[in-house]
Design a protein around this nucleic acid. Structure first.
Lengths: 139, 139
DNA sequence: CCTACTTGATTGAGAGTTCAACTAGTACAC
DNA sequence: GTGTACTAGTTGAACTCTCAATCAAGTAGG
């Protein structure tokens, strides 16, 4: 146990500004999605990942791995998404423990409907408040 | 309804990198606090805000306003914090609708115990991976 | 073969958040 | 003063997330 390296006043300021800005941003985006499209941000991410996969299908573990999500979280989420008919599960024929999640047409439609509002929000809340130099710098 | 201004491939990359980094960071910090001190990050923020207030006391609405928290969330949170004895409520004598939240000695002790681990995590996961120039730039 | 270990995924309980009521007290106008 | 609107805060239900436990299926080692 070494001594704690406390933050200087300046570091604390940077830190608090950063975390509160980041939190505020992701909260606003989550709220917009929930309000306008009835889905949490994490579900949107799942739909996006599936929509970009071949056959709109991914193994559960790959889907969990892609986002930093736990298996358990994903399992609950996909269960919910299956309830609303946006995703369907299939068991893997070669490894019977495994499970595929597949985006349904209905799910794809839901994603298509949600995307414009979300992208617009990302623009307004992130890119429109950054200068092009800042974007370049972040890259 | 105007046309959606979609993100360019480059913008999308910046955006995804940003959001996943920010999420990963705040998740790690939240996990560390929960694991080592048994409190969620939002509760830690409440304790910090109270600890910095005169008499370690704040009106509920001020406490909610300081962080971007909803009244409801704060109400539930303070109820929980009262259960574990870290915070006590007092009604406001001049406005009987109002309510004060006050950090108890036990709550202050819990905060003191949690702080070193949290600050160390902030250092390791944020400042140690940034160059001083980057910190300066962010400021 | 058969036990032991690992892996893919699910389940359930407990906790925090949100949204929409709802209570109670204050302010302001007529 | 009395009705109306607003403000402070709480409550309950629905939902998501986490953690630990569990199950089922594959993989080794003897």
């Amino acid at each position: 146990m070494s001594e704690t390296r406390w933050l200087s006043a300046c570091e604390q300021e940077v830190w608090r500004a950063f975390i509160s800005a980041a939190d505020a941003l992701s909260e606003q985006l989550a709220r917009q999605l929930q309000r306008d499209s009835g889905m949490p941000y994490t579900y949107y991410e799942i739909l996006v990942a599936l929509s970009e996969a071949p056959d709109r299908t991914l193994r559960m573990s790959d889907l969990a791995g892609a986002r930093g999500s736990s298996r358990s979280r994903l399992s609950h989420a996909v269960a919910r998404l299956e309830e609303v008919g946006w995703v369907r599960r299939r068991t893997c024929p070669t490894d019977k423990r495994g499970s595929f999640a597949m985006l349904t047409d209905k799910g794809y439609a839901a994603l298509e409907a949600a995307a414009p509002g979300h992208v617009t929000e990302v623009r307004e809340k992130l890119f429109d408040v950054l200068t092009p130099e800042q974007v370049e710098h972040d890259q």
